Structures are given as C-alpha cells and as structure tokens.
Simulated assay, not measured.
Amino acid sequence: MTETPEEETVWPVQDQIAAYLRDGILNGDFPPGKALPSSRKLHDQFGAAAQTIKNAMEILEREGLVYTRRGAGVFAREHRQRTMTPAEYKNPPTDGGKYQWITAAERKGSSGRAELLDVEEVVPPHLVREAFGLDSEGTAILRRQVLHLDDQPCELVEVYFPIELARGTPIAEKRRIKGGAGRVLAEAGLPTLRCVDKVAARWPTPQQQKALKMPTKLPVLRQFRVTYSVDDRPIQAEFMIKAGHLYELEYEF
C-alpha cells in the first residue's frame, strides 16, 4: 500500500527509546557516569512496557554506550565518538611516512593502522564513472582497505584510480605503498590541488556492516570524494564509510 503524505513511518518503540538515549549520550546531555532516565520515566514518555525498555538498553549496551549497575540503574559510558577533520587528510605525507590521519590519531593518544583488503581492476559505480568520464563498461583500479583506530575498525575506504594513471605503477599492485597512492601520483606530476566531498547517511550494505563490525542496525556516514590535480583532472575518487554512532565530521570554512 502506498503511504499517503499524512501517514508517518513509525519505528518500533524500542528503537525510538534507543535513538532518544543515544542522541543524549553522544550530545553530552547524559554525560559519562550519569544515570539514564528511569524505566518509569521512559514508560511515561513512550508508553513502553518494561521488556521494551530493557530491549532498548540492550541495544545501547551492544553499541558500547551504556553499562548497568545492579540495583542502581543504567549509566552512560564514556562514549567513543571521534571528531574527524577530512579536509586535513587530503594530501600525502611530505616525507613518505605515515598517513596524516594516523599521525593525528597518535597526537590524541590513539594508534592507527590500515589493512589492505583488495586491489583489482573493476567496472566502478556510477558516481565514479561519472567523475572519470567513463562509459558503462569503462574500468578503473580499485584499492579497498579498512582503517583501524585502537584495533577497532573505523572506516572502510574504497579508492578508484583511472586506468591510465594506475596501470604499471605500485597503485595497481596488491601491496601497501609508503606514503600512500597520493605520493605516487604527486611524483608523476599530479599533486592534489582540489577535493570535492559529498557526505550522506546510509544504511550499511552487508559488506560494510561486516567490515566495520557494526553492533546493531545503525546508519553509516558515506563520504564520496573526488580529487583533482593539474588542469582540474580527476585523479582519484573514493568512498569513505564510517560508523555513524562513532564518528562525526568537522569542517572549518
């Protein structure tokens, strides 16, 4: 049946409660160590049964946002949401060393690493073909990797490169590249000069959910970036998929 404009899609009550509390925890309205609203208050607010409220708390516990003290209630945990600044990570390291996001993480007391999953020639998605000016059968080199912070998967990265730029270079080989693919392109006379980002919320695909070890049904942040070089030539296009409950993006204008 087609939904009329007046009708609303109603989430299960346990998901409504979890969303309300999750938002409060991540925004700081329920700081670490603070007791969450009691079952009675949540019942009065949502009209929820005790089991429904318990289900909501179990969702948040699986996400690592709350903990229970027997006889005392449920409390907000020190949450792990991190602020990422993508604009700072667009250029390869000048010394060919660590990725900039790893260096930034280490400055904040965390450890970062990249796990290379695949390198292959593929027919890329529509957005990439559009950026590269490819037809429906045009191919590109794909490098897929998972980024980890403190040994927890934080981002699935799928980077596409035009065939004519990548073929015959380390970019097309299944191995890690010191300083990243951006260093290879820069040394070939194609430095990063401009990036265009598009950020959207999506439900994760099964592949994304598995790679990021998503604990519950949660959205991801999908960041699509096209990088341009000399003469405004597109040199790479990438999808960066982040767990939405763990990360926020910060841009300064």
Rank of each mutant, 00 (worst) to 15 (best):
F46R: 12
A35S: 15
E130Y: 11
L218T: 15
V122T: 04
R225V: 14
F253T: 04
A104Q: 09
G179C: 02
L127T: 12
L193V: 07
T103W: 03
Q81Y: 01
Q145R: 15
V119E: 02
G28D: 01
Y160C: 04
S110E: 11
R77F: 12
L221Y: 03
G28T: 02
R143T: 11
I171D: 00
E6R: 11
Y89Q: 04
Q152S: 10
L249C: 03
T83K: 08
G244M: 00
P31C: 03
V199I: 15
V123C: 11
A105V: 08
A181K: 01
S38R: 08
A35N: 05
T205D: 08
Q51A: 11
A105C: 06
G168M: 06
T227C: 05
L149D: 00
L185S: 01
E88V: 09
Q16D: 13
L21I: 11
D44E: 15
L246D: 05
I177C: 05
A18H: 04
A76S: 14
V196A: 13
V199T: 09
K242G: 04
E61W: 04
T2R: 13
L42D: 13
V184Q: 01
R129K: 11
G33H: 04
G71Q: 06
G24W: 00
T4M: 05
Q51H: 10
R202A: 13
K198M: 13
L21K: 04
R82Q: 06
S38I: 04
H126Q: 14
C154N: 12
P234C: 04
K198A: 11
V196D: 13
S229I: 09
A18Y: 07
